[in-house]
């Protein structure tokens, strides 16, 4: 009877397992295999070159520069984006008028298409037609009007701002959910013991929210480091590579039929993200103990 039940269960999950194996496991293994070859994606013959692609990746300064660019956006997202999300979550958690309206509005940017957001913001930043420059001229700050996405000093920051605008809603939702799991009695008890708002936040909210902070941080790092849609729609990695990120760099190699090298970069990139996640989990566990 149990055996029959097991077989029936297995049959029901089989399609999902097959889909997972075909569309996730197989490509995962194939990526590692391709990274050891030189192949243009068309020739029937693939040339085995071992770890040569990986050696080239290590010495590829443009690849590491793209990692730094993504790292810069990630740092801003980890700090400003998540801080904004936390502040808004706290305000909503405390209960304000039109709470439901704000909850909905804050979650609109994350659900918009990245490419559409990129194109709209490209217009806003445009040096010829952009509304940002129009506003700056209107309020007498004409000297700050520039081609935001073509100026190497402002291009990356401009893209980062759009990414943070689009992304803070995710953090907001998760942080709000976390805040709402904290029992109110703890705040009441703290208040009775004489703790002011800041001390309640520091000694009650923060310790209980540490696991949530780390989930949000990991998701922010993983999501931001893999940024592509905004880069592609706004700058294509320009001007002159100043906004190139790992995925757009890998895409460039794929588009030029260098599949072996592109997959090697993808593997290295994946390992970097994996290492960052492990470090975060380790630090999170340490902090929990403290």
């Amino acid at each position: 009877m149990k055996k029959q039940s097991d077989i029936t269960s297995f049959i029901f999950v089989l399609p999902a397992v097959l889909m997972f194996a075909i569309f996730t496991i197989y490509p995962f293994i194939k990526t590692f295999q391709l990274s050891a070859y030189e192949w243009d994606g068309i020739s029937p013959v693939m040339k085995f070159i071992g770890f040569k692609n990986y050696l080239n990746v290590i010495y590829d300064s443009l690849f590491w520069r793209s990692m730094l660019n993504a790292g810069f956006i990630t740092l801003l997202a980890l700090t400003f984006q998540n801080l904004l999300a936390l502040i808004l979550a706290i305000i909503i958690d405390r209960g304000i008028k039109f709470e439901k309206f704000f909850r909905t509005v804050y979650f609109i940017p994350p659900i918009l298409s990245g490419v559409v957001v990129g194109l709209v913001w490209k217009w806003i930043y445009d040096g010829n037609y952009g509304i940002l420059n129009t506003i700056l001229r209107f309020i007498g700050l004409e000297k700050y009007a520039t081609s935001w996405l073509s100026n190497p000093k402002t291009a990356l920051l401009s893209v980062a701002i759009v990414h943070m605008w689009k992304g803070f809603g995710w953090g907001f939702v998760i942080l709000l959910a976390g805040l709402q799991t904290i029992p109110r009695e703890l705040y009441e008890a703290a208040s009775i013991d004489g703790a002011d708002t800041f001390k309640q936040f520091w000694y009650v909210t923060v310790p209980l929210m540490i696991p949530i902070f780390f989930v949000v941080s990991i998701l922010t790092i993983l999501g931001t480091m893999q940024i592509f849609d905004l880069i592609y729609s706004m700058t294509r990695g320009g001007p002159a590579g100043f906004t190139e990120v790992p995925i757009s760099y890998i895409y460039r190699y794929m588009a030029n039929n260098e599949l072996g090298y592109a997959t090697a970069m993808a593997v290295v990139f994946g390992l970097v993200l994996f290492s960052l996640s492990i470090i975060q989990i380790f630090v999170s566990r340490k902090l929990k103990k403290v």
Partner: peptide, 20 residues
């Protein structure tokens, strides 16, 4: 023109067509 190094051709076509 302003922003030329990040313009895709469609953007440049618009700039010329609108006499900018």
């Amino acid at each position: 023109a302003e922003g030329i190094v990040t313009m895709i051709n469609k953007d440049a076509e618009r700039v010329f067509a609108t006499e900018k």
